[in-house]
């Protein structure tokens, strides 16, 4: 399992570092919200759920997309605005999609995917499918009214949703304590009658907790929903490739415990050197190929402006 964790953690970290590296060259035509430092939630969750399960995510979607198996060349081509991108260049970094892998799109409006996830889960349950939905969102989303509406409805219908709150403490630059009178997000979920776990950023801890929930859903479709509040830290700025400690809303010393506990390094150190290096070499080659693919791919043809407003079967 540790090898699988490391491959996924390292791959996400290195893809995003490469995104950050090339960003100043302006080949990426899209605002990027990097998950660097937050990879362990995506990896722990996506390793624990099943192939047929699906994701709904916020705009900070690179890590869940990759952890669930989303196509890497398609992602980079999408960031480059190319026709071969995951959404044909019409989504950008904030709307990654890979239906075959269960990545059901992403939204740039905070909190918005929560009811979509609940609806999908309820729909799957009505159709008697063994499908669970993992919904990724940040602490900012829990300020929104739709957060409570969605939790209530999911609990009411016992929808098979795994709510994954990646609590990095900040909605852009504003700390949770300045936004919430009771800064206890898991407590809010408990108040809706939802089975809830408070977790650290430890990838094994996240995996074990989510795996237990997923097995419970497999045995009993009415076991859900489940709620996981994962305490994590965003190393980079809210949007963009850089650090932002100079802004003064947070400080490097706040980040230090998280940097010291870097899950990519910690998990990597548990592997034999040769095993680790083999994984890293494979991932580096994959990343190099994906960026080369994106760079050489074509931009969409002008006619693509007008496609996909409605479907061909629609009466338009």
């Amino acid at each position: 399992m540790l090898e699988r964790f490391y491959r996924s953690l390292y791959r996400i970290r290195r893809v995003e570092e490469e995104v950050a590296r090339v960003y100043p060259s302006d080949v990426i035509k899209s605002p990027v919200h990097l998950s660097i430092g937050q990879e362990s939630t995506a990896v722990g969750v996506c390793e624990a759920i099943c192939e047929q399960d699906v994701l709904f995510t916020s705009y900070r979607c690179h890590a869940p997309y990759l952890a669930k198996g989303g196509d890497l060349p398609g992602m980079i081509a999408e960031l480059y605005g190319k026709a071969a991108g995951a959404a044909g260049g019409k989504g950008g970094s904030m709307h990654l999609v890979d239906v075959a892998k269960g990545v059901m799109g992403a939204s740039a409006v905070v909190g918005t995917p929560l009811p979509n996830a609940v609806g999908y889960a309820l729909g799957a349950k009505i159709q008697k499918k063994d499908v669970a939905v993992a919904c990724f969102f940040g602490d900012g989303a829990t300020d929104e009214g739709v957060f409570h509406e969605s939790l209530n409805f999911a609990a009411l219908k016992r929808a098979p949703v795994l709510f994954i709150c990646e609590n990095n403490g900040f909605a852009i630059h504003t700390h949770q304590k300045f936004r919430q009178a009771v800064p206890d997000i898991a407590g809010h979920a408990e108040a809706h009658g939802i089975t809830t776990r408070r977790l650290s950023d430890n990838v094994t801890e996240i995996y074990d907790a989510v795996r237990e929930a997923r097995e419970a859903l497999e045995k009993n479709p009415d076991a859900g929903p489940f709620f996981f509040e994962c305490s994590i830290y965003r190393w980079k700025e809210h949007v963009g490739p850089s650090e932002d400690y100079q802004l003064g809303y947070r400080h490097l010393e706040d980040a230090q415990p998280w940097l010291d506990n870097d899950q990519v390094r910690v998990v990597g150190e548990k592997l034999a050197v040769a095993t680790r290096e083999a994984i890293e070499q494979e991932v580096e080659a994959e990343i190099q190929a994906a960026f080369a693919f994106a760079a050489s791919a074509e931009f969409p043809a002008p006619a693509e402006l007008y496609t996909h407003v409605f479907g061909e079967q629609s009466h338009a």
Partner: peptide, 8 residues
């Protein structure tokens, strides 16, 4: 539909 390139 549009922002996911027709995939959804």
């Amino acid at each position: 539909r549009y922002m996911h390139g027709g995939k959804l």
